[in-house]
Design a protein around this nucleic acid. Sequence first.
DNA 1: CTTGATCCTGTAGTAACTACAGGAGCGATG
DNA 2: CATCGCTCCTGTAGTTACTACAGGATCAAG
Lengths: 135, 135
Amino acid sequence: MKTWTRGQLAALTGCNGETIRYYETIGLLPEPLRAGNGYRQYEKHHVERLYFIRRARDLGFGIDDIRALLTPMDAGTIACGEIEKIARNQLDLIRAKIRDLQRMKQELHTLVQSCQGGSAPHCAIIDALSDGQFS
Amino acid sequence: MKTWTRGQLAALTGCNGETIRYYETIGLLPEPLRAGNGYRQYEKHHVERLYFIRRARDLGFGIDDIRALLTPMDAGTIACGEIEKIARNQLDLIRAKIRDLQRMKQELHTLVQSCQGGSAPHCAIIDALSDGQFS
DNA sequence: CTTGATCCTGTAGTAACTACAGGAGCGATG
DNA sequence: CATCGCTCCTGTAGTTACTACAGGATCAAG
């Protein structure tokens, strides 16, 4: 049966090798068997699980959320409603972050537009930040 | 001359009291004089500086950026071009974050839409995360 | 004079990694 | 067989920007 080393798993999934070790210490990825020299021997299910974790991370899910997704999977007791709740919650968080960043973008854009550039000793950006005359 | 305690400064600026202490230890806010009992006595310039810092933080500037904004201010050698560069850079960072979050939002939205909810043991969200058949 | 709020210091915890330091093993080359 | 460079091992410390105590002193009010 084919196994993978840590570096191979890292290359395969695009996940940093140190991060893999980190996922093991926090119990997100089960510890693999070891070869005679102490090297980790990852199996197919490790690869799949790490893919899952990375995809969830790419969608912004936190470690605790991922744990909450994986636990029922491991137990074979998936309740679609629970999963949906976690996903909706994540979606809400992301929408809130976007709103926040868009406010920042607006204000920053205004600030940058007000700047004449060059080596003028009087800067509109600094003035705005100092006086609180924006937003 | 009026001075403020840490708690008063916190209430005034909306900045957590512990955070004020933190800004002092990292040298962002100069250490104030102390009263006989050891209590900090903040002056007007502290209040103004903390306002500046908080406004910059609200726009997403990092501590190092803020330092880069404050240093020339302290030295009285403001070069508008440098300031503009920092601000434009921050604007770019924010735009990139927004793009990233919007991608996540899209994918998550699709996922959530695909879910039927309820206690179905078969969950479309889990499937999508497991198979990598999205994005 | 007691009580509760605020202040002080120093340290540790948060999220999710990332980066060493110090050592051992592996594969290829001479 | 020795050596070189890469990968692997462990454990620990650093990153960002705070936040949260613990343990003690001080202040203001009643």
